[in-house]
Amino acid sequence: MDTALLIEKLVLVVLLFLVSLGIAAYSTYFERKLAAWIQDRVGPDRAGPFGILQPIADGVKMFMKEDFTPKNADRWLFILGPGIAMFTALITSSIVPWGTDLYLFGRTIVLQVADFNIGILFVFGTISIGVYGIMIGGWASNNKYSLYGAIRASSQMISYELAMGISAITIIMMSGSLGLTDIVKSQHGMNWNIFYQPVCFLVFFICALAETNRAPFDLPECESELIGGYHTEYSSMKLGLFLFAEYVSMFVSAAIISILFFGGYNFPGMDHFSGNTLALLSVLVFFAKIFFFIFVIMWIRWTIPRFRFDQLMHLGWKVLIPIAIINLMLTGIVIAFHEGWFLN
């Protein structure tokens, strides 16, 4: 293998890791700030100016706290749970195309760790593994609330994966490729999928909320009924990993949503730029879209109350899946007409 390529990818991976963690850390801060603003409060403002050192203070607190393992817990699985959750949350970002090509030191650097030609399937693969972190952690705690949280999490994630997959298939049909790079490129020039598939976007967005365990679908960890759900027994940095994983997966799902529906790094008038300027601008635009969706997800959390579990299942199976299937069929028919399948 080319050594330069290896170094390039390694730098990208490390950078991506740091950016993901940084954004996740500041998401916690921003979430608290936003909650405060919505409730006419100030929010954290003591650590540093405007409280911007709050994530660091929280991290230090997490590290300093007592790391407790319940007596009857399955020791290895108890440690494995948060590890899997964090791993699957982080690994999804490896196939996200972050911008157009960069030209440095006479090399073309692709701002993507791995261009899988089955990128979107990889996303679904990692999502489907993501449930194991919660399940294993919840089961290994040997606590009934944790177990309830784990069972809820798994049934919720499996149910919403279906509607999510079907709505993603619609997008795959639109762009004719499974690779995320191709999907982004097919939306060049304001051909964003959101204009063609608003219903599909709504279904996908709701499912993304459910998959990342965000409110109003945060039943696996609802504090009022399950006293924290799957992470009831967790403390210290293991709890920190669970919470962090949630924010990382929120970041990644915001990225996936903006790739699938909002043109990824495309922006109007991008043909006027070229080379490294274009690359930088595209990365900035992409991150702006990601931050917007993170904001929307948080905004929803502080607006809409939590679902009841039967309502959740009803919404998933009897509303979203039929809508997604009908939308898929309509899209298929339109594409078939468009390509003239019925003419000959």
Binding site: F124, G125, I127, S128, M135, I151
Partner: peptide, 18 residues
């Protein structure tokens, strides 16, 4: 490979665990 992960590891084994 991915289908194997999605279907076996992601769905069938979750069912078993469940």
């Amino acid at each position: 490979a991915i289908v194997n992960i999605i279907v076996y590891a992601g769905a069938i084994m979750v069912l078993f665990l469940f």
